[in-house]
Amino acid sequence: MHNFDFVKPATIADAVKALSAEGAQALSGGQTLTPTMKQRLAAPSLLVSLTGIAEMKGVCMGDDGLSVGAATTHATVAKEAAAHYPALAALAGGIGDPAVRNRGTIGGSIANNDPAACYPAGVLGSGATVVTNRRRIAADDYFQGMFSTALEEGEIVTGVTFPVPEKAAYVKFNQPASRFALTGVFVAKFKDGVRVAVTGASNNGVFRWAEAEKALSSNFAASAVEGLTVSADDMIGDLHGTPAYRANLVKVLTKRAVAAAQ
């Protein structure tokens, strides 16, 4: 890979300042960025590691829900969110493999917004709020298609706040090689309705399945989804599954997630 300078600031302010330099890029867990740089598909001149910022780490329960610092690793979320939000903890505990979970972070995942990543489903499915150094962004506004988010130049994710639903579950069907989600569905039942977020399936990245949300809001049972159809239009077709196959998975996994959330 190309060479670069490396800095590891201790505060958000210092990180933001460092990132204002030409060619600077934030490095969170690096589990995606590092392989990309090895392939020379990314060549920053300055890497700003966010893993040394204490104020961006940790899981804590507050009045507005569960707050997770952006630099919190998947392993930490899997462990520390378990008592508060088991479905989110389980999602985090199923990302990649243990070594990846020890480095990869929630902030890195949602800043990258890989269309097959797990966290976007959890964040969107929970109706969470993405907190940045500048503002708070509702999940519905944050994810803007494959590898695309509402983040602006110089803006970094500092945390995510999750309202905790009554019931929730994430069911992921692995892409057999990468172990990313070939399709993953996050279902969350709140007092005022149900949210269903799907990752891995769509050419437009993570999305909410509105019909299922409606059906499940009136009857939170797997059978409520039975009569629905998922269009294969705009679904991803690749070596591992056709659009029709992914459309099928969306429905099957939604049913399973509802069953698991009971």
Partner: peptide, 11 residues
């Protein structure tokens, strides 16, 4: 015999 192929064969 991947999941997608089995599913396609069934359907």
């Amino acid at each position: 015999v991947s999941p997608a192929r089995v599913w396609s064969a069934i359907n």
